[in-house]
Design a protein around this nucleic acid. Sequence first.
DNA 1: TTTTAGTTTCCTGATT
DNA 2: CAATCAGGAAACTAAA
Length: 219
Amino acid sequence: LLLSGPGILWYKTTHNITSQLPHICGSLQVNPQCWTSEHVLEWISDHVDRIKFDASTLTLDYCTMDGATLCQMNHDQMISIFGPQLGLHLHQSLQEHKTKYGGMFGFPNPSSPESRSTPRGTHLWEFIRDILIHPERNQGLMKWEDRREGIFKFLKSEAVAQMWGQKKKNSSMTYEKLSRAMRYYYKREILERVDGRRLVYKFGKNSSGWKTEEVGMGM
DNA sequence: TTTTAGTTTCCTGATT
DNA sequence: CAATCAGGAAACTAAA
C-alpha cells in the first residue's frame, strides 16, 4: 500500500490514509533528525496535501530518505529535487521543525518558544521573508534595503497583497489590509518600525530565517 | 465546545 | 490628490 511505487503520494492526496498510520502521524513532533524514512514520506505527503501539489511529478525514490539525510539538504537541493513550489514549502517546514523540535532526542521540546504557537500554515511575516530570500519567486515584488539589518521594502505592494490573498484564498486582500497585519507585528517585535520611509519595514528580534548565514545547523 | 492566535475588515484621522 | 501610516474595534477562522 504505502510502498507500492511512484503513484503513492498522489494516492495519499486522493485518499486520506491518515487513520491507518496513527503511529507515524502522531510522532512527527520530534527532532527531524530522528525521523525514519516513513516519517519523511508522511511529512512530504502532508505538504503535498496542504499545497495541493501535483505529486504525480514526483518519484518515490526521491522521497525515500531518513530524517538525518533530509536535514542535510540545503534550500537549493530541496528546490532541485522537489521543484520551486514544493521545495520551498518543504524547506520552510523543515527549518521550523528543526527550531521547534531540534532541542533533544526523540522528544518534543516544551521549552522551545515556538512550541506553543500555531504549528502549521505560513504566517504573513514568513511569507514576506520567503519572497525576499527566494529571488526565483520574486519578480521585483520586494527588495532588501539593508540585507544585514533586515530592512526591506515593498516595490509592488498590491501585487504582494494579491499573492498573500491567493495563499489565504482571499481574492480581496489589499496592501491596506496587509499592512495592518504588518503593524500588529511591531508589538510582538517580529518587525521593527522604520518611520518616515513608506513601504519600508525591518525584521525584529522575534523573526528568524532571513539572516545571511543563519541556515539551521543540526543543533 | 470554548478559547485563542493571527490575522481580516473597517474606519477615522494624520502624514507624505 | 492618491497612497501610506497609525491604531482601535470588532469579525473571522483554524487549531488547541
